[in-house]
Amino acid sequence: MKKTSQLVLIILLAGMVAVSGCNKKNRKAEGADMGDGVSASGTGTEFGPDGKPLGDWQDGSSGDMLSQTTILFAYDSSEMDSESQAIAEAHATFLRDNSSINVVLEGHADERGTREYNLALGERRAQSVADVFMALGVNALNIEIVSYGEENPVADGHDDSAWRLNRRVEIRYDR
């Protein structure tokens, strides 16, 4: 049972990598007339697995956890709470067992405070997740860390509800 579900997971995530690979190509073509370095602005949400199929198949929780690809953080903090830790651990386990798959950890901050400081803060958040991954045996070479600071918010508002969603690390398999 466990083996089967793991296999399903691998197929699913591998499919995700392939599909989003296509997406990326399409997007590039779309934006090609817009000049240098053009590509999709990566909020990541549209490429993530929606989680429902996994939830239906899985009796354990790791599938649900794997369907969550965003980890939120407290203000000016790069520390993870227990829920975030569990999400990170689920991805770490998956990556450890599938060493051919690479992951990008994309750190973000809310708009408050200065842009350069927030760029560093975003990297710290991504590093925190990477630390969990590596502690659980994921090869550092399979992990790429990127920080966008406050430059790529998922929520555009200027209030607590937007800021909460923007303080995040996105776990992306789609590069």
Partner: peptide, 8 residues
Amino acid sequence: DSHQPLMS
């Protein structure tokens, strides 16, 4: 002119 963020 870029579709990715510019700063500083």
